[in-house]
Design a protein around this nucleic acid. Sequence first.
RNA 1: GGAGGGGUGGCCGAGUGGUUGAAGGCGCACGCCUGGAGAGCGUGUAUACGGGCAACCGUAUCGCGGGUUCGAAUCCCGCUCCCUCCGCCA
Length: 428
Amino acid sequence: MHDLRWIRENPDAFDRGLVRRGLPARAEEILAIDREWRGLETEAQESQATRNRLSREIGAAKSRGEPIDELLRQVEGRKQAETATAAKAAELRQQIDELVATLPNLPAPDVPDGPDESANKEIRRHGEPPRFNFDPLPHEVIGEKLGLMDFPRAARLSGSRFVVLKGALARLERAIAQFMLDLHTGEFGYTEIAPPYLVRDEAVFGTGQLPKQAEDMFRTTDDTGGLWLIPTSEVPLTNLVAGEILDEAALPLRFTAWTPCFRSEAGAAGRDTRGMIRMHQFSKVELVSVTRSEDSQAEHERMTGCAEEVLKRLGLPYRVMLLSTGDMGFAAQKTYDLEVWLPAQDTYREISSCSNCGAFQAQRMKARYRPSGGKGTQPVHTLNGSGLAIGRTMIAIIENFQRHDGTVAIPEALQPYMGGQQVIAGNG
RNA sequence: GGAGGGGUGGCCGAGUGGUUGAAGGCGCACGCCUGGAGAGCGUGUAUACGGGCAACCGUAUCGCGGGUUCGAAUCCCGCUCCCUCCGCCA
């Protein structure tokens, strides 16, 4: 959510940000309603001040035993006009809020302009794509040949975009997640969280998936009014600080969680239909940081580094992309995607997305901190990143470490989590 | 699922219609006191919005939303969350 006062003071910068996002300028429209609202607001408040004063006088007169008829006459009729003014003001304010709530965060200055992912900028690469003396197979073929990845049965249970993993691959999912959690908690100072997977409207509004991306999520329909299945644990982790006023000394907060994620993939019909690239349900280790405003840029680099370290230790080749204005998510002001090499697709595919949301989410969820020394409060900055998506990590391992005989080597870093197993050879 | 109880400031805790944004206590900050510390004393200590260059002024907020009233933390209605007991249950 954008700070209305900031828009008032910086209407041009606001519009420039929207235009860079490929959206029309809106400042003039917003500020016109804002001017009208403020006029009515002031009017209503002044009227109320008068009425409050008269009411106090009535109380005082009554306690002295004096007549109050004259005072009652003065206050009479006042209420109606005031209520109408206040109602109109509230209506305008709601109009502003609803309009502003649909506008995405503004891109940071160093974000490249562009209509889509074609304008993304490669920042760096790490590792060399492996060379094979045979044609590398896609992960789903390897998994099915090993008898450890079952799409038909998953479809029978749940339809398309689901998978059943068995034996060593089921264990591999757990191993990957544990390895990531241990790294982030043990070496990078993140606190492990086990959050709810079902959340209310306010939480999803806070991180910005509502109101615009409702169709990308699943919602329960129980009689309590319905809850959203989290599309990412960014939602519960970030909303941990919703509505709070934090001590400056408590920052930064760093949270990590291993959770399932649920996405309807409504807009992705026909894309990535083979394999486990795009599932309705996948698991992910998420990283979330809550920082002071002046620290979020450095934290963004740090967080991206934490996610990269996972790929480095697994020996997976990847590149870091700085997303363009056209490819960034709603709440982000700047995003790095980590893309891992997938031999069968002969390309890099997204495996992590690390975003600095600045004050955008904080303002939506009213999360602030009290700067020590200074007065008042200011919104925290929030960041989130995958560290990493488990399913896609598994895909990358299977494809990059496949061998001519159809078996898959387990990266050394994961072997302790696989009971010392070094190779996945099928039948568990 | 059934029955009952309760949500007041950073915390505890008063308060059933009239200077109550809210007593009192704790905590915290600053000052005084002290050789220093403690005790003691004094002052201060919410958030949001509007107006103002500012000092400051105003409005709202006692779980949330609505209603009654000249006036609501206090009365009424709806919702929500928490707690206790019973039942059920991983």
